[in-house]
Computed example of a mutant assay.
Amino acid sequence: MKPITWIPLMWGVICGAVSSGGFVWRWENVLIAAACMLMSGPLLAGYTQTLNEFYDREVDAINEPYRPIPSGAIPLPKVIAQIWVLLIAGILVAYGLDRWAGHEFPILTALAIGGSLVSYVYSAPPLKLKQNNGWLSSYALGASYIALPWWAGHALFGTLNWTIVTLTLIYSLAGLGIAIVNDFKSVEGDRQLGLQSLPVMFGVTAAAWICVLMIDIFQAGIAAYLITIRENLYASILLLLVIPQITFQDMYFLRDPLKNDVKYQASAQPFLVLGMLVVALALGHAGI
């Protein structure tokens, strides 16, 4: 289930709650927000990761044969059972959150089901986005990590609107850059099995540049938007956070993306994550 991957989704829920302007610090809201993070992280991200591991077992047998499924440590029937348990539990929690919020339309349940379908299309044949379209698969992953949990947190404590939807989808183009990083470790297996990840399509060096430019350009674009709504302080903070990010991109990732992908993510991604919260604070302050 890769617990490290839960953190961005749980953080996205926090950003959505902040941008809604409706979160008030009291125990009930804290517990409800925690339930939403449970839904987004351990349950549905866990479902996504387990599903992806199941359908990537042939690739992993080449790249990382020690992983639980290709090594045989976990039998396939247990993997399938885990997928179903996580999926159903995630949707049930989403429905409970809709009931708590008094939604006439069960928007959180719809987001949970919609995100789960995106996960299935990303990982499973016959569509398997990664196999057929590296751009679309990376964007689907980026949007799942930024936009979807943000929408859930915002809808839970406020009213989700098209401005928030549009901005987070644009922000997810920065997430596309983060998604590309995950493809470098499996480039050899992807190439052998004909999977069209961006490192396979464009080569390692070009894909590394695409990765960092997507992250930096779209963060700067969001900062420009904050200036247009007169949230200049938050825009300045966001731009300042991009500076160390660029530094680590040059120090680690652009010099050797295959060797330094994990080191780069550990050093640079915290600044992207903090930038998301800065944007959420700005949107909440502006009443978007």
Score class of each variant (00 low, 15 high):
1 M>N: 06
3 P>G: 15
4 I>A: 15
6 W>T: 13
8 P>A: 14
8 P>I: 14
8 P>V: 14
12 G>L: 05
13 V>A: 08
16 G>W: 04
18 V>I: 15
19 S>I: 08
22 G>R: 03
23 F>H: 04
25 W>E: 07
28 E>G: 13
29 N>K: 03
31 L>E: 02
33 A>Q: 04
35 A>Q: 08
38 L>W: 10
38 L>V: 15
40 S>G: 09
43 L>T: 05
45 A>E: 15
46 G>K: 06
50 T>Y: 15
52 N>M: 15
52 N>R: 13
55 Y>P: 02
58 E>K: 03
61 A>Y: 02
63 N>D: 11
64 E>C: 12
65 P>D: 14
65 P>H: 12
70 P>D: 09
70 P>W: 05
73 A>V: 13
73 A>I: 12
74 I>N: 07
74 I>S: 08
75 P>M: 07
79 V>D: 07
80 I>F: 11
80 I>S: 04
83 I>L: 14
84 W>I: 01
85 V>T: 10
91 I>F: 12
92 L>T: 07
96 G>I: 04
97 L>K: 06
99 R>E: 11
99 R>C: 11
99 R>M: 11
101 A>T: 12
101 A>R: 15
102 G>D: 15
103 H>L: 15
107 I>C: 04
108 L>S: 03
110 A>W: 01
111 L>M: 13
112 A>I: 01
114 G>Q: 02
118 V>Y: 02
118 V>E: 00
118 V>S: 00
120 Y>L: 13
121 V>D: 00
126 P>S: 12
129 L>D: 00
132 N>V: 09
134 G>N: 09
135 W>Q: 02
136 L>D: 03
136 L>A: 13
143 A>N: 02
146 I>N: 01
146 I>V: 06
147 A>D: 00
156 L>Q: 06
159 T>S: 12
159 T>R: 07
161 N>C: 07
165 V>E: 13
168 T>D: 00
172 S>D: 01
175 G>I: 03
175 G>T: 06
175 G>K: 07
175 G>L: 05
176 L>F: 00
176 L>P: 01
180 I>L: 14
183 D>P: 13
183 D>F: 09
184 F>I: 05
184 F>L: 01
189 G>A: 14
191 R>Y: 08
192 Q>N: 06
192 Q>D: 01
194 G>C: 06
196 Q>S: 06
198 L>K: 09
199 P>H: 13
201 M>F: 01
202 F>H: 11
203 G>T: 11
203 G>A: 10
209 W>I: 07
210 I>L: 12
211 C>H: 14
215 I>M: 13
217 I>C: 10
224 A>R: 14
224 A>P: 12
225 Y>G: 04
229 I>C: 05
230 R>S: 13
230 R>C: 10
233 L>D: 05
234 Y>M: 11
235 A>F: 07
235 A>N: 02
235 A>Q: 00
240 L>Y: 00
242 V>C: 01
243 I>F: 06
244 P>M: 11
247 T>G: 11
249 Q>D: 14
250 D>Q: 15
254 L>H: 04
256 D>K: 03
256 D>E: 07
262 V>G: 04
262 V>Y: 13
263 K>G: 09
267 S>Q: 14
267 S>W: 14
273 V>R: 11
273 V>A: 14
274 L>K: 09
275 G>D: 05
276 M>K: 04
281 L>Y: 08
283 L>G: 02
285 H>P: 00
286 A>I: 00
287 G>A: 09
288 I>F: 12
